[in-house]
Design a protein around this nucleic acid. Structure first.
Lengths: 204, 204
DNA sequence: GTCTATAACTCGATAGAC
DNA sequence: GTCTATCGAGTTATAGAC
């Protein structure tokens, strides 16, 4: 398979191919041969650009980790009501993951398998803004805008409701037989449903 | 490592070891040598009991698939209020997964990777009671016990809120630094929180 | 930068003794 | 049933020509 756009660099072709194969098979199941085929080059060239499979994986994993936390900081720091922030976060998450539905399983599977030291290194470059998120919830509680709640429960609720359906998509499709299209419709609906649920569960 | 209880059969030792290794590493990352070591036997004996790695995996995957759907049918068929059913399902799910926290990632990762034909075969023996679940929600809607809602959205909400936190546990612990114990406390709380959220979101 | 050829190694599987 | 020893396929990585 040769890339039509001649201006796409070999490195970019490799990264795109690696993304597809790693997302699909995971680190252990991915084959350098498959990545080379998909990029339209041969194995040796992979090693020329990225020294080893591990280095290539690290590159994909790091950028994915970053993508897993959509522009949360910007939203959290914005000067908007708490409920508006919730709505924006849900929409950002659902849109983000909808465009790369294999991301959640990949991240969850690999995070559970990598040594702590490796993870520490990765997100020293891509820090998820959890502290900030917790602070935003705590502030809303103090200002009596919402009920006193454990911030982590709220965060878990939001992320669960937005992301899990994508992680469970293959299972859901197998079990219910719904089409790709029907699934997309459900996910679009959730951009309204999920914030409603969250707000309702913590409003005074 | 030799098993102390002499009455535990070799087959059981293999299955327990295989469960651990497959849950931890996935099919592709698992090594027959690791399973043999953990079971206190050698590789050849694995092949004597289960012809191949694939057969052994199939055994573990099938029983896991079954465990992923806790005794839903019994609860769904029970003669109780809709809201009580929701509560029972959440408790059943959280308790079930709490006792095997690696199950969700394993199932989600592997389901996405197995061919459709294989999955069809598996759950012809372990059918998840989705049809029944949908019917229960639809009945509650018709009886005007709850708002008109898309049953799949309700099901997704329940499963997301109960299961995702376990799938995200390694990530959550890395990112927030909470202990195993603190995590358990949060999950216990959720047995009350989640049903409340679900009921509130669909009550008339 | 890109290719072919191959070295070095890992791992599932089997043969065959006890 | 259980073991040791080994084969052979498949995979990452490198050497070296162009």
């Amino acid at each position: 398979m040769v890339n039509k756009a001649k201006d796409i660099s070999t490195e970019q072709k490799i990264l795109e191919a690696a993304r597809q194969v790693f997302f699909d098979k995971g680190m252990d199941g991915a084959r350098m041969q498959d990545i080379a085929d998909k990029a339209g080059i041969n194995k040796a060239l992979l090693h020329y650009y990225f020294r080893s499979k591990e280095k290539l994986f690290e590159t994909i994993f790091a950028e994915s980790f970053n993508n897993f936390f959509p522009k949360l900081s910007l939203i959290l720091e914005s000067d908007t009501d708490f409920s508006v922030k919730i709505e924006m976060i849900c929409t950002a998450y659902i849109d983000q993951i909808h465009s790369m539905p294999y991301l959640p399983i990949f991240i969850l599977h690999e995070v559970a398998r990598q040594p702590e030291s490796f993870l520490k290194k990765i997100w020293s470059s891509y820090p998820p803004p959890v502290k900030l998120f917790i602070k935003v919830v705590e502030t809303a509680v103090k200002k009596k805008e919402i009920k006193p709640v454990h911030p982590l429960q709220v965060i878990m609720n939001i992320v669960s409701l937005c992301i899990f359906p994508f992680a469970a998509k293959p299972l859901l499709q197998q079990v219910t037989g719904i089409s790709k299209k029907q699934f997309s419709v459900l996910m679009e609906e959730r951009k309204k449903l999920v914030p409603q649920m969250i707000i309702q569960s913590i409003k005074k």
